[in-house]
Design a protein around this nucleic acid. Structure first.
Length: 501
RNA sequence: GGGCCGGUAGCUCAGCUGGUAGAGCAUCGCACUUUUAAUGCGGUGGUCGCGGGUUCGAUUCCCGCCCGGCUCACCA
């Protein structure tokens, strides 16, 4: 018999012994007077003398994460919401039934206790237990106490165990929540309205990506999981919702990497009567404040670098290529504007695509500090408005940090005729084999025909922002349940079934 | 998809040029009524990811496959 089967059998036997003592192995509500964190903050500085002079009685619940038994007494640590408090169980101090229950406890069980606070000989704030209740039985063993759970695959597949065993994981997701809360609050303060637009769309658009396809049975119709909410949000701007935002999932049917998960979270927001310059200023504020709200500082350490969100760098794409040119043969501004020169540097057919190629080759991974890159070629920007003085370029920028793209924003193209041209160019690219090119969205064109106010819009990758603000090297570390291949037979159902025989 | 690395007890890991597997923690038993990596003594626990091949003999060598990580490609 394997160790796991043996432990299951032992614990199955304990279940009935717990019942025989008059406790429920899977209890109901437990009335507590404090959470562990309340006790730590309210009484963490009380001395042993103060606690014995004015006894504090408390009732708490938590998961047992350590047991040290010493004859007819023992110390246990309970964990609740990532914090730990020691409890002391002594035979003399509780009734016989409770003591028998204590003898059955395993690391990982969830219990409730009542008693008074005291400090041990070594000075640790603890509860001197007087009553003990049982709330939930652990059947499978928890990972080892030192190393915790290290196996990356198990951590992602069994995030519940990861969260119990590795307190720092909990911190990452608390920070993620603070980031989103900060962005929401900042947008609300500026009069933005949170909306929800379709995740299942009859046409997909708003980004260059391949979609997931699903099917609605009653309508007998294929639908796409959205690759971006952009075109719907702009329909709302047409309708007079002048400041809107949405924080939700996008789905892109692409490869998986440390920076890509097939479903990921984007913040998108649109502001009527603004342009990309207003968006640049807003972005600087949003990111700086989100960093401060989430981490307590506008500077964070990521992969050995100090990233400063209080002072973002700023280059046009052309300037950036010159600035980060890899050798001494640095091009001039005239070079970089010259289609002939660009053609000599890149295999890409159009000058704009060639510039982007140079940018991606020489610049992108060098943008460690939070940096705004603005003015993009029109070829790769089918939804952005042209620069009036340079129609080959559009009023668009992206934010990079730690070599990653964090955000993408532009002045929205609101001319339906021009938007039709851009979609037609995309259709030509699709016909030429570009699977990520946009499709024609006629209803979107119709919406623009009703007149969309000039507007700025932006998308911010929440997962990547969370990576930066939590020091995570992989996007999987900031997504609770990242996509993995199926793991195969788990076997627990059969084991539980066998236990009942 | 390519390259590299990994999968051995519940967890964290050793295991040499091939000779049928070990440690710590966990678990079980005994002792111990202020410990905190509690301690001391004793025990249980393994389809060595899966399937083939070579060999007298494979955790070890070879081939294929599965799962994961890093990386390149892809990817706004």
């Amino acid at each position: 018999m394997s160790q796991e089967d043996e432990i299951l059998r032992q614990r199955q036997a304990q279940l009935s012994r717990i019942r025989d003592l008059g406790f429920e192995p899977y209890g109901h509500a437990f009335e507590f007077t404090h959470t562990i964190s309340q006790i730590l903050s309210d009484y963490g500085t009380r001395t042993a003398d103060e606690l014995s002079a004015n006894p504090v009685h408390v009732r708490i619940a938590g998961r047992i994460v350590a047991i040290r038994r010493m004859g007819k007494a023992g110390f246990l640590h309970l964990q609740q919401n990532g914090q730990r408090l020691q409890i002391y169980v002594k035979k003399d101090a509780i009734n016989d039934t409770a003591y028998k229950l204590y003898e059955l406890l395993d690391t990982g069980d969830i219990i409730g206790v009542g008693g008074y606070l005291f400090r041990t000989r070594t000075g640790e704030l603890s509860i001197h237990v007087e009553v003990l209740d049982f709330l939930s039985k652990i059947m499978l063993p928890l990972p080892e106490k030192w190393h915790g759970l290290e196996d990356v695959e198990t951590r992602y597949r069994q995030r519940y165990v990861d969260l119990i065993a590795n307190p720092e994981v909990r911190e990452v997701f608390l920070t993620r929540s603070r980031i989103i809360r900060s962005l929401r609050r900042q947008l609300e303060e500026r009069g933005f309205l949170e909306v929800e637009t379709p995740m299942m769309q009859p046409l997909y658009g708003g980004a260059a990506a391949r979609p997931f396809i699903t099917h609605h049975n009653a309508l007998d119709q294929d639908l796409y999981l959205r690759i971006a909410p952009e075109l719907y949000l702009k329909r709302l701007v047409v309708g007079g919702l002048e400041r809107v935002y949405e924080i939700n999932r996008n789905f892109r049917n692409e490869g998986i990497s440390t920076q890509h998960n097939p479903e990921f979270t984007m913040l998108e927001f649109y502001q009527a009567y603004a342009d990309y310059r207003s968006m640049i200023e807003l972005t600087k504020e949003l990111l700086k404040q989100a960093a401060a709200d989430a981490t307590g500082s506008t500077q964070v350490t990521y992969d050995g670098h100090q990233l400063n969100f209080a002072n973002m760098w700023q280059f046009t794409m052309r300037e950036a290529v010159i600035e980060f040119w890899p050798d001494h043969d640095t091009p001039s501004l005239d070079n970089i504007k010259d289609p002939e020169w660009l053609h000599r540097q890149s295999k890409e057919s159009s000058p704009g695509a060639a510039l982007v190629d140079l940018f991606e080759r020489y610049v992108e991974d060098k943008l460690i500090q939070p940096t705004i890159i603005y003015e993009f070629p029109v070829e790769i920007s089918p939804l952005s408005k042209n620069k009036p003085d340079d129609p080959a370029f559009v009023e668009r920028f992206e934010v990079f940090a730690a070599g990653m793209e964090l955000a993408n924003a532009f002045t929205e193209l609101n001319d339906p005729q021009e938007q039709r041209h851009r979609f037609e160019q995309q259709l030509a690219r699709k016909a030429g084999g570009d699977e990520e090119a946009h499709v024609m969205d006629e209803d979107y064109i119709r919406a623009l025909c009703y007149g969309m106010p000039p507007a700025g819009g932006e998308g911010v990758g929440i997962d990547r922002l969370t990576m930066l603000l939590t020091g995570s090297k992989s996007i999987r570390d900031v997504i609770l349940f990242p996509l993995l291949r199926p793991e195969g037979d788990i076997g627990i159902v059969k084991r539980l079934r066998d236990l009942e025989k």
